[in-house]
């Protein structure tokens, strides 16, 4: 049996070197709430585990250009305990806090949720709606991409060999902006989203939607940024007709599957229902700012 190695580098460069240099399967460990489950089920058997929690800034939330940079190992609980960030991006925070139990929140990270590339990841539609960027370090240096470019299919990311996401950047918000996230699950807690919807929008003084981003989870192989849904509400005051158009655009964008968590038909219908509800919450938040 090959030995499974465990390393705790203290710099980004050292981590990249380890990840790039491993001939077998190398996995990054931050919260471990996905990785340990996969290892137990033997769906993932790494040759090398690179624990990034000893690297400076991985556990940090820092203000940057009026927004926030969230280190890759910041747990959901730590994120929720940051009052300023929670005030600026309540939808992102509430989406992250929906991942698993209180116990899971003690470990699970937004970056891990993104890089696990599950179509049902709760934080991802909220991050996409927020226009978040992922900072990537790798053998060829650093780069930054919109978060929606990270997952490419269930369980697969666009990260190249040796690359890992070091932080997520949540940009500064204009005035009268709000975001929200809702998911549908059959229980009140502990389920994977059957459908998830994140919306971020900015209103003008009259309450008309100036800008919007709408994202859906669990209705396609990856979370979707639905431009048609955003266009359906931009320029409106979220009147019933606008909400109907939003719901229709969301349902139309779905490419779901039937599985143990829900049917195709159900997911398509619920995507529209959630979008309406999320848009109204986001607007209420925007009006308060």
């Amino acid at each position: 049996m090959d030995e499974m190695r465990y390393e705790t580098p203290t710099s980004v460069n050292a981590a990249v070197k380890l990840l790039a240099g491993e001939k077998g399967l190398a996995k990054v460990l931050a919260g471990g709430t996905d990785l340990l489950v996969q290892m137990r089920g033997e769906t993932v058997v790494p040759n090398l585990i690179v624990d990034i929690k000893k690297i400076a800034d991985m556990k940090a939330i820092k203000k940057e250009k009026g927004g926030f940079r969230v280190g890759a190992a910041v747990s959901g609980a730590e994120l929720g305990e940051h009052p300023e960030l929670s005030k600026m991006w309540p939808g992102v925070v509430e989406a992250t806090e929906l991942i698993g139990s209180t116990q899971v929140q003690g470990r699970a990270t937004m970056t891990g949720n993104l890089c696990n590339a599950s179509p049902g990841a709760d934080s991802v539609p909220a991050l996409i709606a927020a226009g978040a960027l992922a900072a990537i370090a790798g053998p060829n240096g650093k780069r930054e991409v919109p978060v929606e470019q990270i997952p490419v299919s269930p369980g697969k990311t666009s990260l190249a060999k040796g690359e890992f996401v070091t932080s997520l950047f949540l940009p500064k918000r204009p005035k009268k902006s709000g975001d929200a996230y809702l998911r549908f699950i059959p229980r009140t807690e502990m389920d994977i989203a059957v459908v998830g919807c994140g919306i971020s929008l900015t209103l003008d003084k009259a309450g008309t939607v100036l800008a919007a981003r709408v994202a859906l989870g669990a209705v396609a192989p990856t979370a979707l940024l639905v431009d048609a849904a955003a266009n359906a509400i931009i320029g409106t005051k979220l009147e019933d007709a606008a909400l109907d158009a939003l719901a229709a655009a969301c349902s139309a964008a779905c490419r779901p599957i039937d599985d143990k968590r829900g049917t195709k038909e159900f997911r398509i219908q619920i995507a529209g229902v959630l979008a309406r509800r999320v848009a109204l919450i986001a607007r209420a938040r925007a009006l308060k700012k």
């Binding site: 059959p186 229980r187 009140t188 807690e189 502990m190 389920d191 994977i192 143990k260 968590r261």
Partner: peptide, 16 residues
Amino acid sequence: LVNAGFLDYRMPVASD
């Protein structure tokens, strides 16, 4: 059996 775990065999939780 495709839901052989507490995640997808949905037993009631305290908040339900």
